[in-house]
Design a protein around this nucleic acid. Structure first.
Lengths: 343, 343
DNA sequence: CTGAAAGCGCTTACAG
DNA sequence: CTGAAAGCGCTTACAG
């Protein structure tokens, strides 16, 4: 077993409480004593036993709040699984995690949830935000006025004073999609369509720019059509796909940044083009896996959903428990590529 | 905070020790008392506080041994990182992890390491084995005679009584590589070469079979050359590549199951074919990432190295600490696909 | 079969 | 500024 504060206390001729005060920088210790204790701790190679610490601190009851939106979507359900894993770890250590699930995207509800959490005496919040000036202001107020640290995840909040962001690097996601799509048509070239969700969604736009950039720079034989927007709606996606196939019978590939694959696949099937067209989809969500196995989707470029729920909670827990700050402001999750063989 | 054994004890009118005996099936409790305590625990929704349990048990000093081979390779170094993360978690909980690093592949050294660990009173072993009858027998002896559970990782030991195996599904790895390589040449077809390490290595052979199966079944326009073996040696790989390029100037792709990419790339460069040939490599190891970024390697199909070190240790820890058995006998790690854009 | 007590390593008021 | 004591939730000999 390792070195304990008891040993250090004995060696230094002080009480365990004093060692604790020194090692945890709680102040109120004479400089000589402070120095002596630190030296002995270093010599003995002291490393705090986290079990003892957590148990001792479990009287404090660290309370972490989590706010998610679009809680009905399958992607967020996967994120929620990560949140729950983290929650049970935190609860095993004597803390509490409160989760507020907001269906759909709703800035007002987010604002109210934040207030409710504050009233319940939460110490930190993991927040899935939406770009909205009032949310940005409230985040800043929480951080500065109430000293409640906030981590954003899944989507970031530009220029807000959140501790850090956990999520995808959407730009690289688009580049990754393009790097694969491009290879498929490197020699023969082709016409490729891009279907996105909303022009206003910055994440999706970044995927599009990454995709466009790589194709334009690396694959001169490929002709990119203008981006079209399906509002994350399957019917819309279906109609758009039909239109693309009609106007561009030469098209060889479709890149989708968002939900709506089912519509695209329906249109492809209707035209008997499901074998011919290379479909690269985004996110490992909904029935994407099935479409992949059926061969309708050729590739999925996804983000680590579970990690996006797990990490924000644990980052806050480590902050409250240890004072440990996250190393990076942007904690990008891995970009995963799935084919029918590695699901 | 949750329900504690103290509350249960009070409610049941017994001591905490008795509650502990009931809830942890330590026996020596009157049936009526046993029943009553269980009922109350259930009603109150008792869930043991793992912190308290771990701290209480930290006097037991759970000791886990880890044996790795080929410790000088970069792949195993990544595995080792996972082992160390697990080790520090276990040590934080009052346990001990002993790691034996064996350079190269050496059955004798493995046998001796196992004996040494037993003498040191280890309670369980995570073992990276090699197919060898003596190791199989020793594993069985440890498990049956000494009651020391063993988890194999990275490579498995066929038909030995190990608790479970953590590692890659090599067959799927080959299939995944083929699914991508195949798409690149779906329309035009091509000649593809396969370079492996040793014909006797079952993992590498499974990669080859998976690759072959998918290409033959799904991509009739692709012609596969016979597998050649480079003995995981760069010079050999270089010579083999030169020979392939000479005999099959029409070749469009090379699939490598093992180490030796540098040799292949040298040969490609020498012939000015580095742009033309699609190179799919295996494992995220050595300077593979650099070759990927330079565009010499087009794709890497890899395995999760860190997880392969982390999981075996944690599986054993959970077993010793909780009696928790692994759910699956084969714990396959994810197959990851990397391009220059998602490293 | 059962209880009382000591212990795991740390934190936290409290008294001085 | 410092120490003694109680406490976190559990486990473990030990005595009976």
């Amino acid at each position: 077993m390792g070195v304990t504060i008891r040993q250090i206390a004995q060696e230094a001729g002080v009480s365990r409480g004093t060692v604790d005060r020194v090692l945890n920088n709680r102040g109120r210790v004479r400089p000589e004593v402070d120095k002596k204790v630190r030296e002995i701790a270093r010599e003995l190679g002291y490393r705090p036993n986290l079990l003892g610490r957590a148990l001792g601190m479990s009287r404090n009851d660290i309370k972490i709040g989590v706010i998610i939106q679009a809680s009905e979507t399958s992607f967020i359900k996967a994120v929620l699984a990560g949140i729950q894993t983290a929650a049970s770890e935190v609860e095993n250590s004597g803390g509490t995690v409160l989760v507020e699930k907001i269906p759909g995207i709703d800035a007002d509800k987010v604002l109210r949830a934040m207030e409710r959490m504050r009233e319940q005496g939460i110490h930190a919040i993991a927040l899935m935000p939406v770009e909205d000036q009032r949310i940005r202001e409230k985040v800043n107020q929480f951080v500065e006025e109430y000293q409640i640290p906030i981590v954003t995840f899944n989507g970031d909040l530009e220029a807000a004073k959140r501790l850090c962001f956990v999520g995808e690097n959407a730009y690289l996601s688009g580049k990754t999609a393009a790097g694969l799509m491009g290879e498929f048509f490197r020699e023969n070239g082709s016409t490729i369509a891009m279907i996105s969700g909303f022009a206003s969604n910055s994440s999706l736009s970044r995927r599009i720019s990454g995709f466009r950039e790589v194709i334009e720079q690396q694959y001169p034989k490929i002709h990119l059509l203008d981006t079209v927007y399906c509002q994350e709606d399957e019917e819309q996606a279906e109609r758009l796909t039909e239109q693309i196939l009609k106007e561009h019978p030469e098209a060889g590939g479709i890149y989708m940044t968002c939900f709506g694959e089912n519509g695209v696949c329906r249109a492809l099937k209707k035209q008997g083009k499901e074998q011919e067209i290379v479909l690269v989809a985004s996110d490992l969500t909904g029935n994407n896996y099935e479409l992949l196995e059926e061969g309708l989707i050729n590739l999925i470029v996804g983000q680590e959903d579970v990690v996006q729920g797990y990490e924000p909670v644990m980052i806050l827990y480590r902050l409250l428990f240890n004072g440990e700050k996250p190393k990076e402001e942007y904690q990008y999750t891995d970009i995963v590529i799935k084919t029918r063989y590695n699901v």
